[in-house]
């Protein structure tokens, strides 16, 4: 039933989604799970996994999943968004879902660019990083989402991890779903490859993510 991936070859997103699905399967909550997708490359996951999935609008997936969860409190409500969807256009909804401790799980794919629209500056673009809207290199302070949100909610599960370490990724996602089951907000930001917009390939992708960690430290917050 799983469709063929329409993500670019080498993209980090399918790996994240597969790890996430593995957990739902293991915990036997596939039926109760519902995956809401922001618009960004995340939209490509609309028919990728054998679980209920729907697209929303750019920046609106968190608000939609808040409503979904209200109507179906026993669901596992997952909002999957890019860094732009989460920390720019949808920031207000994300922060308020965290402040109100809404029991939804937000997974943020941090690829340091607006990938779907061709590599513009994102809230997570790093100082000096060149993008099509920062040709001279970005001089804008990158947004550290997890660190910020930690200050808004003491009960939430908040972490940053990377898709280059599947074991860590799995551990954080498991804890995030547990937090949702306990009635709390959770957010896991995942550093993730975008070979198409970074214009790097192979081993360089890992090196790129290592460099990202200087701006975006891994761990729980």
């Amino acid at each position: 039933m799983t469709a063929i991936s329409t993500f670019c070859p080498g993209c980090g997103q399918p790996a994240i989604l597969r790890v996430m699905h593995g957990i739902l399967k293991e915990k036997k909550v596939e039926e109760k799970a519902v995956l809401g997708l922001d618009i960004g490359c995340s939209l490509l996951a609309w028919d990728y996994l054998p679980i209920n999935t729907f697209q929303t609008h750019h920046g609106r997936v968190v608000a939609t999943m808040v409503g979904y969860k209200k109507a179906k409190p026993d669901s596992v409500s997952i909002a999957y968004a890019g860094d732009g969807g989460a920390y720019a256009i949808g920031f207000q909804s994300l922060l308020w879902a965290a402040i109100r401790d809404e029991p939804v799980t937000v997974i943020v794919n941090n690829n340091a660019v607006y990938a779907m629209t061709g590599g513009q500056t994102a809230p997570t673009t790093m100082i000096g990083q060149k993008t099509s809207t920062s040709p001279a290199g970005s001089d804008q302070m990158p947004v550290n989402g997890p660190e910020l949100i930690r200050n808004l909610n003491k009960d939430a599960y908040i972490a940053r991890t990377t898709m280059t370490d599947m074991k860590e990724l799995k551990g954080h996602l498991e804890k995030a779903f547990e937090a949702q089951a306990q009635g709390h907000f959770s957010l896991v930001e995942v550093l993730s490859f975008c070979p198409t917009n970074w214009k790097v390939m192979g081993a360089e992708l890992r090196a790129y993510v290592e460099r990202m960690q200087e701006t975006f430290p891994l761990g729980t917050f």
């Binding site: 929303t56 608000a63 409503g67 209200k70 909804s93 308020w96």
Partner: peptide, 19 residues
């Protein structure tokens, strides 16, 4: 909600859940 945008999308979410 924090604004009308969130209110509208929360309604979308709730009706998708069947309520």
């Amino acid at each position: 909600t924090e604004d009308e945008i969130a209110a509208g999308f929360a309604v979308c979410g709730a009706v998708m859940a069947g309520n």
